[in-house]
C-alpha cells in the first residue's frame, strides 16, 4: 500500500477544506472496507487520506414523523440495522441492512461509503431508491440535494463531484399501509454478493397490484455472461412472476 498523509478533520467543513486543498490526491475514508481493499491492491494510490470517523454526529440516525429518517453518511450498516426507528417505520430498510454481508462488515462499512463507491453488487442502493431516498452532498462551495436514483451513473460511477462529500441520506416516511419485500439471489454461498437483488415497495391503495418496483441486476461471476447495471426504478415484466409474495404489510 502506498504511503500517505492521514487527516482526521473534526467537522465536515474541515473535511471539505482538506479535499479542496488536495484535490486529486485525496481520498475520503469512512469504514474502509472498500477503499483499503483497492489501496492494498494498488488500484488506488492516494497521497492523502481524510478520515471522516472523528466528525461528531457524522454517524447519527434521527427520525421525525414529518421529516422522515435522516441517516448521516458515517452511520454504519449495523447502526442502521439496529436503529429502533428504522425497524419500526422502515421495515424494508431493516430487512435489507440486516442481510448485508455479515455483522463484522456491517460494523465497519458506512452507508455513505457504500453509496459513493457505486458498486452495484451491494444491497442498500435498491432498497433506498425504492423508498424514495434523497441524498445531500456538500463541498466548500455548495450543497445540493438529489434523489438517490439520480446519483448512480454506471458501474462504479456516481455523480459525486470533485470536492464533494455525501453527508446525509433522507428517507421520507412512507404512507401506510405499506407492502414491501427484499430478496437476494445467492446461487453459490450465502456469504456471496447477490447475483440479483430486488427491493419492492407497494403502497396505499396500490397494494395488491404492483405500482412501483425497483430491481438491481447483478453480475453472476459463475456461468453465464456478466453484466452489471445500477438499480433503476423500473417496471420489469418478470417481476410479476419472480417477485416475492408481498407478505410483509405494515
Amino acid at each position: 500500500m502506498v504511503k500517505f498523509d492521514y487527516f482526521e478533520p473534526k467537522s465536515v467543513e474541515q473535511a471539505c477544506a482538506f479535499l479542496e486543498r488536495h484535490a486529486d490526491e485525496a481520498k475520503l475514508i469512512a469504514g474502509g472496507t472498500a477503499l483499503l481493499i483497492w489501496m492494498r491492491m494498488m488500484l488506488l494510490n492516494p497521497h492523502v487520506v481524510v478520515s471522516l470517523a472523528r466528525i461528531p454526529g457524522f454517524d447519527s440516525i434521527s427520525f421525525d414523523p414529518k421529516d422522515g429518517l435522516r441517516i448521516k453518511a458515517g452511520a454504519r450498516h449495523r447502526d442502521i440495522e439496529l436503529d429502533p426507528a428504522v425497524r419500526e417505520h422502515y421495515p424494508l430498510l431493516y430487512e435489507t441492512f440486516r442481510k448485508v454481508a455479515q455483522p463484522r462488515i456491517r460494523n465497519m462499512g458506512t452507508i455513505g461509503g457504500n453509496l459513493c463507491q457505486g458498486d452495484p453488487l451491494t444491497d442498500p442502493g435498491a432498497s433506498l431508491i425504492a423508498m424514495d431516498a434523497e441524498i445531500t452532498l456538500t463541498s466548500s462551495k455548495a450543497k445540493r440535494t438529489l434523489p438517490l436514483e439520480k446519483f448512480f451513473v454506471d458501474y462504479y460511477q456516481t455523480d459525486l463531484r470533485p470536492g464533494e462529500i455525501l453527508i446525509e441520506i433522507r428517507v421520507p416516511l412512507p404512507a401506510r399501509p405499506l407492502g414491501w419485500a427484499h430478496i437476494k439471489f445467492l446461487p453459490r454461498s450465502q456469504e456471496d454478493f447477490a447475483t440479483v437483488g430486488v427491493a419492492l415497495v407497494l403502497r396505499g391503495n396500490a397494494l395488491g397490484k404492483r405500482r412501483r418496483s425497483c430491481a438491481a441486476k447483478r453480475s453472476p461471476m459463475i456461468e453465464s455472461g456478466r453484466w452489471r447495471r445500477w438499480p433503476r426504478m423500473k417496471s420489469i415484466p418478470w417481476m410479476t412472476t419472480a417477485a416475492p409474495p408481498i407478505t410483509n404489510v405494515t
Binding site: R188, S189, Q190, E191, D192, F193, M221
Partner: peptide, 22 residues
C-alpha cells in the same frame, strides 16, 4: 474461470468456499 490461462479474480470474494450458513 480461466481467461487465457489466467484464473480470473483469484481471491476469496470471487472464489467462494462454503460458510457456516452453507
Amino acid at each position: 474461470q480461466f481467461d487465457e490461462g489466467r484464473p480470473v479474480n483469484p481471491n476469496f470474494s470471487d472464489y467462494r468456499i462454503p460458510s457456516m450458513r452453507d
